[in-house]
Write a protein that binds this DNA or RNA. Structure first.
Lengths: 149, 149
DNA sequence: CCATGCAATGTTATAGTGTAACATCCGCGA
DNA sequence: TCGCGGATGTTACACTATAACATTGCATGG
């Protein structure tokens, strides 16, 4: 995670983007949570450090981070998660465990190809695929755990 | 669409599920919109016919329709769309056009296989895939239209 | 050094999406 | 008829996100 922050610093420096205090802090909070985290959770945690913080502050930071590929949004959860490799042009495929609530990024080229070719066969040009696979992670599978407690 | 409604009737009859007046009406409204439609839009339209209608009425009908595969939810749009073939076990892959706002269902087996095998390779068991491909439909591609007006 | 212009942040209010909790109704079988 | 369960009505609220405008702060050229 410290690594992810450094990578973010480097990436922003290279692009001339400003990783300000707030943006950095939000990125850190996103990473610190080992699960996808909601904007209002970030809001609350950020508020603990800086007194009253309003929603736009958090959403603006998230917009910036997403625009630079440092964070992904998971639409089916209304939640945000750090991107493990913001350098490459990431597609973002997610494995979302309904047992423990964790999410892992997949980025499988075969899936990407299958999607693009399937869509192309219908004459459709994919621009922003949303791939979010709800299911069971290896841990929860083994334990036969029920839905997230 | 009339066809879709009949198919829904049959399917519910076969399952002993009750396609009540409200549920039927909501399904009709979902189909009538040729784009994915928001719950509050349905709410408003339903309200025009029946006087005041509260959100839970619509959400409960949608929950029922989704549970029976008659309607899909598109998470990236917070919107709902009728399912063209509720009989088969549908996976639900959607092509969402950012030009005209329309959405088409794909259901490509190759995509489904790629996803399941990719996830399985990570030890993950997919239960409810969310596949929503934002891009350009053939029409909007041709016209080079800008984002939905 | 100051002006000034632009990006970032602060602030207030509100829009949009979804659910909890409890009351009521209605049909059906014991 | 009574009671039961599923469906609907009703109220209130939680959660997610953005619009609109004010303010700050910093780089940059005059």
């Amino acid at each position: 995670m410290a690594e992810a922050l450094e990578a973010a610093e480097r990436l922003c420096a290279r692009r001339g983007a400003r990783l300000t205090e707030i943006r950095r802090r939000v990125l850190e909070l996103v990473w610190r949570s080992h699960q996808p985290v909601g904007a209002y959770t970030i809001l609350e945690r950020l508020g603990r450090e800086r007194g009253r913080v309003a929603p736009p502050t958090v959403y603006r930071a998230l917009d910036f981070l997403i625009a630079h590929g440092l964070v992904h949004r998971i639409a089916s959860l209304n939640a945000y998660i750090g991107c493990a490799h913001p350098d490459r042009d990431h597609i973002g495929q997610f494995l979302v465990c309904s047992g423990c609530g964790s999410a892992a990024e997949l980025d499988d080229r075969r899936i990407d190809r299958a999607i693009r070719s399937g869509a192309e066969a219908a004459g459709f040009a994919v621009e922003r695929p949303v791939i979010e696979l709800a299911g069971r992670c290896p841990n929860c599978r083994e334990r036969g755990r029920d839905a997230r407690t």
